[in-house]
Design a protein around this nucleic acid. Sequence first.
DNA 1: ATGTGTGAATCACTTCACAGCC
DNA 2: GGCTGTGAAGTGATTCACACAT
Lengths: 207, 207
Amino acid sequence: MKNVTISELPERSRRRIVQLTQLLSRIPEAQTITSADIEKMTGWTSSVIRRDISLIGCQCGATKGYNAGKLLKSLKDALGHTETVEKKCCIVGLGKLGEALFSSNLLEGTPFRISAGFDASVNRTEVLKASFPLYPTPELETVIKSEGIKYAILTVPDSEAQKIADRLFACGIRGIVNYTGIMIVHPSDSAVENVSLITALSDLAAS
Amino acid sequence: MKNVTISELPERSRRRIVQLTQLLSRIPEAQTITSADIEKMTGWTSSVIRRDISLIGCQCGATKGYNAGKLLKSLKDALGHTETVEKKCCIVGLGKLGEALFSSNLLEGTPFRISAGFDASVNRTEVLKASFPLYPTPELETVIKSEGIKYAILTVPDSEAQKIADRLFACGIRGIVNYTGIMIVHPSDSAVENVSLITALSDLAAS
DNA sequence: ATGTGTGAATCACTTCACAGCC
DNA sequence: GGCTGTGAAGTGATTCACACAT
């Protein structure tokens, strides 16, 4: 099996590969790592890990386990995390949460780049300092289209969330990372990743 | 099927039920809602929704669909979201992100309550204002044990994350909501919900 | 000797399809 | 008539177990 692209493989495998990528990026490149080692760190069984890796056609596991650097490279390739391709995002809602997210440089070293920020308050867009341009919300459609932005980080108040999401999907946004407390209704050709504190806590408590 | 508790049912169903609860809480109690309506809003098939609901033994669907209020109540019961039971959480790391999370009152109306905050900087714990007590990180073990806190929201810098997580699990924390950019290695009798921006964006982009 | 890669078997989840009920 | 609730069938993911490579 060779050169399978990420969106072709099973959803569960895909998510594990995303996380495995993050895990490996903190391990010295030269180190070898076995599927049993990864099992200890993640809780996934070694066989599911071996299968995931074989699905992307890495074939980099020699007799003593995988070479961490090579494996990471294969995973990143499969995910399309190559230096040359930059994935444009915007952040909508520049309250405390929005500000905290973009000012902490979380996306450094990833293929994602925040290219625009939006807030309903003109005052806010003028006062805040960011490494990307800030616009009042009415300009949302124009900027997203002209910049070709495909992903949005949603940090507006709950009461605004669905309305803004509708506008985002209407102007070409393919996916939203939803930090609000409500569930976003969305078209079937788009995606929402729920990153809400309530969902996360409820999932923890129920597990 | 009656009175099945949430941790007994399939993981996928559990997660959908958590989300469904959030969705329903924004719908008038008196309204009736069919599994087909929910399909339109969530993208899950009506049959998977009907089965999820039947798993918790609601039996509240009459001939014209579910009564939103009754359904919500059944779901909340199954999740253990009853008024009387309060689930204690703490937040570790009171930087911008931590502050943004607790000051936005996201947990109002949920069974979760933040009972303590911790930060490495004594200055920070003294200056910030919160509706719960703030402590310097060395007091973490003492406070968590004496308060009986079971869940933690982790918003420390990446470089500290694993160290702090180890301490949290060692003193009785059962689950962590991880806002840091790294993957937390954790004991198998505990859980981590990853809520990192990078993971969410990567999952979106790969879908 | 050790750990991968992968068919085959198993297990879990989803969809089908329809009986039953308002 | 319309929609739920649920056995039975189908699909998809995980685990088993072992041949193979070093």
